[in-house]
């Protein structure tokens, strides 16, 4: 029973926090552009409105499954990561997960999305999916190497162990103990959030909104919630991996907020790479950085 309560609390809290973060990021982007920007609660309004619209267009099985895949992936990640250390409500199943399972599940969510968008048959969606998968294969590489470097350095693959090893003050955070690997992982975080200069998936100038082109009303609403959940899941994972985890709700919110603002700020001042530039950059720079730390740890 308490398990169920904790799962519900985790999911609801991260959904609200994710949508709120999205609203804040829209406001921040608007202020950087010199505009007023929408309300902070705009994303809630959008999701509710979309949920209450009529849904009469769909394109087959995978099209239905894609938002589910995404939400499932996000929830799995959330349940496997220690959200607040030592808090019995949000500890969930984090005793059971190791880092590679998490990376796999994250990939699974994106893959479901890709299949659904492919099933919709819209050419823009298909182009966006092929770009997205190409880019994913490049940033996943650097991210995985960074994670391996950290895991080898700390002699544990368990996410719980990685968090526990960082509890001795700020200087024990992985971002200071493994600076190169962290830099690689943080660079890989930009394309994960589809931030510019790596926003080739949603490129509004060529393939207007990319994969969800054919998704309407309720599907889109689920997709938005899924994206919010997924965003929070990624943030929590990064906080656990690099920034020492969160010892209280307050520190969780502050850390995830600051981490979320990093791609937003970078994204609103950069132009966009072309596909091949983006992939070349991701193959060389973050991967090399992560490899430096891996070699250092191995020696």
């Amino acid at each position: 029973m308490s398990n169920i309560i904790s799962i519900v609390v985790t999911i609801a809290a991260s959904l609200i926090w994710g949508l709120l973060l999205g609203g804040i990021s829209r406001t921040v982007t608007a202020r950087i552009h010199g505009r007023m920007g929408p309300r902070v609660t705009q994303n809630f309004i959008d999701v509710w409105k979309l949920f209450r619209k009529k849904t009469s267009i769909h394109h087959g099985g995978m099209f239905w499954m894609a938002p589910m895949f995404r939400i499932t992936g996000a929830i799995c990640v959330l349940l496997m990561v220690p959200i607040v250390i030592g808090n019995s409500v949000t500890w969930n199943m984090s005793f059971a997960g190791d880092v590679f399972l998490l990376i796999y599940i994250m990939f699974f969510g994106c893959l479901g999305m890709a299949l659904g968008a492919g099933n919709s048959g819209h050419p823009y969606a298909v182009i966006a999916v092929s770009r997205g998968l190409a880019q994913m294969s490049s940033y996943e590489l650097s991210f995985s190497i960074a994670v391996v470097a950290i895991a080898v350095g700390l002699h544990t693959f368990r996410i719980e162990g990685i968090v526990a090893a960082q509890q001795a003050g700020i200087s024990s955070w992985n971002i200071f103990r493994f600076p190169f690997a962290s830099a690689g992982a943080l660079l890989a975080f930009l394309p994960m959030q589809m931030a510019y200069p790596f926003g080739i998936v949603l490129a509004p100038q060529e393939i207007p909104i990319g994969p969800p082109t054919e998704y309407s009303s309720r599907f889109l609403s689920l997709m938005f919630s899924g994206r919010a959940l997924f965003g929070v899941a990624k943030l929590v994972l990064f906080v656990s991996l690099l920034f020492g985890g969160a010892s209280s709700w307050l520190s969780l919110f502050v850390k995830t907020f600051l981490l979320y603002m990093y791609p937003v700020v970078v994204s609103s001042v950069f132009p966009r790479f072309r596909t091949e530039q983006s992939i070349r950059f991701l193959w060389f720079v973050p991967t090399t950085l992560a490899l430096v730390d891996l070699v250092r740890v191995m020696l």
């Binding site: 829209r26 608007a30 505009r35 705009q42 309004i45 959008d46 509004p204 054919e214």
Partner: peptide, 16 residues
């Protein structure tokens, strides 16, 4: 003029 402050946004497809 910034119409995003009213929550008005442009969508590229009639579906949405």
């Amino acid at each position: 003029f910034d119409m995003e402050r009213f929550g008005i946004a442009m969508r590229p497809t009639p579906r949405q």
